[in-house]
Lab assay of single mutants.
Amino acid sequence: KTVHVNGVQYDFDNPEQAERFAKEMAKKAGLQIQFHGDQIKIE
């Protein structure tokens, strides 16, 4: 899974790890999470 945070890309082999990371980042920055198939976007 790939997580995009403000244009920066983070790759994870483990989907659960990717989602946990995305939730942490979104919570910290007060941003929205969008799921697009294999990609998670935080903007």
Rank of each mutant, 00 (worst) to 15 (best):
K1W: 15
K1Y: 15
K1H: 13
K1L: 14
K1E: 03
K1P: 07
K1Q: 08
K1I: 15
K1D: 03
K1T: 14
K1F: 15
K1V: 14
K1S: 12
T2A: 03
T2L: 04
T2K: 03
T2C: 12
T2D: 01
T2W: 03
T2M: 04
V3F: 04
V3H: 03
V3Y: 03
V3I: 07
V3Q: 02
H4F: 15
H4I: 15
H4K: 04
H4C: 15
H4D: 04
V5T: 01
V5Q: 02
V5Y: 15
V5N: 01
N6C: 14
N6P: 01
N6Y: 08
N6D: 09
N6E: 05
N6A: 07
G7N: 03
G7E: 01
G7R: 01
G7K: 02
G7Q: 01
G7I: 00
G7W: 02
G7F: 02
V8F: 05
V8I: 09
V8M: 08
V8G: 02
V8L: 07
V8P: 00
V8R: 06
V8T: 06
Q9C: 14
Q9H: 06
Q9F: 05
Q9M: 08
Q9A: 11
Q9W: 08
Y10M: 03
Y10P: 00
Y10Q: 01
Y10H: 03
Y10K: 01
D11M: 12
D11Q: 13
D11E: 10
D11W: 15
D11N: 12
D11R: 12
D11F: 15
F12V: 00
F12A: 01
F12T: 01
F12I: 02
D13Q: 05
D13H: 03
D13T: 05
D13V: 05
D13N: 05
D13R: 02
D13P: 07
D13S: 07
D13F: 04
D13C: 13
N14E: 07
N14V: 04
N14K: 04
N14Q: 04
N14C: 13
P15F: 12
P15H: 11
P15I: 12
P15E: 12
P15S: 12
E16D: 08
E16M: 07
E16W: 09
E16Y: 07
E16T: 05
Q17G: 03
Q17H: 05
Q17Y: 03
Q17R: 02
Q17N: 06
Q17K: 05
Q17S: 11
A18S: 01
A18C: 04
A18F: 03
A18E: 01
A18V: 01
A18I: 01
E19Y: 15
E19D: 09
E19H: 10
E19G: 02
R20M: 12
R20F: 10
R20W: 10
F21Y: 03
F21V: 02
F21D: 03
F21N: 00
F21R: 00
F21G: 00
A22R: 05
A22H: 02
A22S: 04
A22V: 10
A22P: 00
A22Q: 04
K23I: 14
K23L: 14
K23E: 13
K23R: 13
K23T: 11
E24P: 00
E24S: 02
E24D: 07
E24F: 06
E24C: 15
E24K: 04
M25W: 11
M25I: 13
M25E: 14
M25Y: 13
M25N: 02
M25F: 09
M25T: 06
M25V: 12
M25A: 10
A26V: 04
A26H: 02
A26K: 02
A26F: 05
A26N: 06
A26P: 00
K27L: 15
K27Y: 13
K27I: 14
K27N: 14
K27R: 07
K27F: 13
K27P: 02
K27T: 12
K28C: 15
K28E: 12
K28R: 08
K28L: 14
K28H: 12
A29S: 10
A29M: 15
A29K: 10
A29Y: 15
A29T: 14
A29R: 04
A29V: 11
G30S: 06
G30T: 04
G30K: 03
L31W: 12
L31P: 01
L31H: 07
L31G: 10
L31F: 10
L31R: 00
Q32H: 10
Q32Y: 06
Q32F: 06
Q32P: 06
Q32M: 11
Q32L: 12
Q32K: 10
I33G: 05
I33Y: 06
I33M: 07
I33K: 03
I33H: 05
I33E: 05
I33S: 05
I33L: 09
Q34Y: 13
Q34K: 11
Q34V: 14
Q34D: 07
Q34H: 11
F35T: 07
F35L: 09
F35N: 06
F35R: 03
F35P: 05
F35S: 07
F35C: 04
F35V: 09
F35E: 08
F35I: 11
H36G: 09
H36P: 06
H36C: 15
H36M: 12
H36S: 10
H36K: 10
G37K: 08
G37R: 04
G37L: 06
G37C: 02
G37V: 06
G37N: 08
G37I: 07
D38Q: 10
D38T: 10
D38F: 11
D38P: 07
Q39I: 14
Q39M: 13
Q39T: 13
Q39V: 14
Q39C: 15
Q39P: 08
Q39W: 11
Q39G: 11
Q39R: 07
Q39H: 13
I40N: 05
I40P: 06
I40K: 03
I40L: 09
K41T: 12
K41Q: 10
K41W: 15
K41N: 09
K41E: 08
K41L: 14
K41C: 15
K41P: 06
I42L: 14
I42C: 14
I42Q: 04
I42F: 07
I42K: 05
E43Q: 10
E43M: 09
E43V: 13
E43S: 08
E43T: 10
E43D: 10
E43R: 03
